[in-house]
Design a protein around this nucleic acid. Sequence first.
DNA 1: GTTTAGTTTCAATAATTATTGAAATGATTA
DNA 2: TAATCATTTCAATAATTATTGAAACTAAAC
Lengths: 175, 175
Amino acid sequence: MAALNRVRDELVMLWDRLGPLWGVSPSAARVHGWLLTQADPQEAEEIADGLTMSRGAVSMACTELEEWGVVTVERQAGSRRQLYRPVTDLEQVIRSIIQVRKQREWDPLLTQLDRWLEMLEGDRGDGVDVRSRLERLRGVIALTDRMAMQFLKGGALGSLGLKALVRSSRAGRHR
Amino acid sequence: MAALNRVRDELVMLWDRLGPLWGVSPSAARVHGWLLTQADPQEAEEIADGLTMSRGAVSMACTELEEWGVVTVERQAGSRRQLYRPVTDLEQVIRSIIQVRKQREWDPLLTQLDRWLEMLEGDRGDGVDVRSRLERLRGVIALTDRMAMQFLKGGALGSLGLKALVRSSRAGRHR
DNA sequence: GTTTAGTTTCAATAATTATTGAAATGATTA
DNA sequence: TAATCATTTCAATAATTATTGAAACTAAAC
């Protein structure tokens, strides 16, 4: 059990650091990491204890994790406590994160680019260079967008043979 | 010209907001956005003026942008001023960002996962579930890693027909 | 309806992160 | 070499973001 505890601590610390790079707040990321190292779904009180953070912070973190779609809430019959269960299908976790980020980042960017190109329409000065630059940017974003859509439809990982890869990487782990 | 100025302001504001989501600091992102709307490479003084930020802040932002590989430094013959030029090949920009992020995020994650799995080796308690969970995570990361590698080798965008797509999306822009 | 066991909210505060600007450093020219 | 022009650094400060905890709220059980 000592090993598991150490892994838990380190995982939580790493998640705390990496979370913001994915757009997830550090505390939400910590909660997610901690849940990943629990055999069963956990209630808010336990999470607060395990991570020594306040009850309120746990509530906010869990709400955020629900929005990301990487944690689901359950309630045991005959109790009013909520249990938080991390999504353990990790392909699904990645898909959720991509979906949310696409919505937050790419979609508005694409909308803006169209507006800007309209504004620069017919510009004869320096705007010409800028316009063609933005047009190319728009092309790349549009492409990324299509790739993401395809991935979200379940194409990419599946068609690339996720299961086989997981198996082979597991087998080959000991160098 | 008025149009270009408005586009510039809005682009800078959007970059400022989106930058952190890509792991780029807001001020560095602003500088990059601003440079994108300039016909020619610019010197630090001008950037500081254009964005009303201090000379020192510009220096730090540009260093960061160089690290990301999305800005290059030039010096005109017969002058000691440095000119900052944004990489305008946007496929290259995306590639640079993916490369740096892979290095910062995925690579250490993969290393850690291997260490943790070793630590949990032979665990008979709750660790078993956690271990299989981490193994699956490792599989997904490894796969993502391979996809990234392939992309970085120049495969993905090219093979998916970037140029054709850019052309077609440009043509279809006015619905 | 009241009590109880829980969740959520949000203003106050703590912690972190970004920014400034003055001093140190480096490079070019004369 | 000294003088000049430009860049970089970094301690101090400003701005932002995360966290707390007490109060408001909600729903089930009595």
